[in-house]
Nucleic acid binder design. Sequence first.
DNA 1: TAAGATAAGAGGGACAT
DNA 2: ATGTCAGTCTTATCTTA
Length: 308
Amino acid sequence: MTSHIKKVWKITKCPECGSDDLVEDHDRGEIICQSCGIVTNENVMDRGPEWRAFTKEERESRGRVGIPISYSMHDKGLSTVIDRINRDAYGKQLPISTRLEMLRLRKWQIRTRVHSSIDRNLAQAMAELDRLTDNLHIPSQVKERAAIIYRKALDNGLVRGRSISAIAAASLYAACRATETPRTLKEVASASSVKKKDVARCYRLLLRELDIIMPVEDPIRCVSKVASKVKIPVKTQRTAIGILGEAKQRGTVSGKDPMGLAAAALYVACVLNEVKRTQKEIAEVANVTEVTVRNRYKGLKETLKLDI
DNA sequence: TAAGATAAGAGGGACAT
DNA sequence: ATGTCAGTCTTATCTTA
């Protein structure tokens, strides 16, 4: 008896590096090179039957017809379409009960299709999150958090009409804020292809629609962050914290950028303690402009009646 | 060179229409 | 739903000490 071993042409060497350490991923229809990481999806499609038959009977019973399945379609091309012609194969009008049945089936068909579109959206978003977190060196735990936020946004229909990458970036930024992972909006935006203002808009949308309460950053907590970067002595830091506490009591801190306030308070403290730091140095590490430092500095001077 | 001043523009929140 | 307004922050440029 002749054996019916499949004759399948397969690549055995990586086209990039020549290694033969290849792994097949049948679900995705790809071949991955273990040594260089190159993924190829060429020549993987197995056009022969996926079964083996050893007798004539087996061959006949296992043989089928139909188009080859396709990996590029989300359902691998296996969907059935229920059309709207309420007639049977002979063109006869269907009885009312069957018509209602078909109506129900069509409804569910559409619903499952929506489902798969959500899946595809998620897959794309997760890929984007992967890319962003990779670029920004963000721990996976924060990424998980971002993914949860994204799913919530998707469930609430916030993604419709907006770009997936914008919402993904905004979710990631929100996750960073929530976990106190120090990444600025600017950094997140520049890692993604979305403009900063769009990420900011989506971020606010997330906070509003998902009722996320984000703790407002306390300028006092920013002081040490900024101070450590420009090596300002602890004593001067304490002066700055005192200044901020005083300003807070007089209610002149709300609505201001906490980093700007911290920077200005530090600058004042430096002047008072005769620590030589320029506005520029402090503004730079606080990620605000000199002008902002000056404006806050002016405000602090007024509210505290300082003469410098 | 550091600090201050000024102007123009962006973007969003509050509020009225 | 849309427009206006006050306030914030940024960028850029010029002046002052």
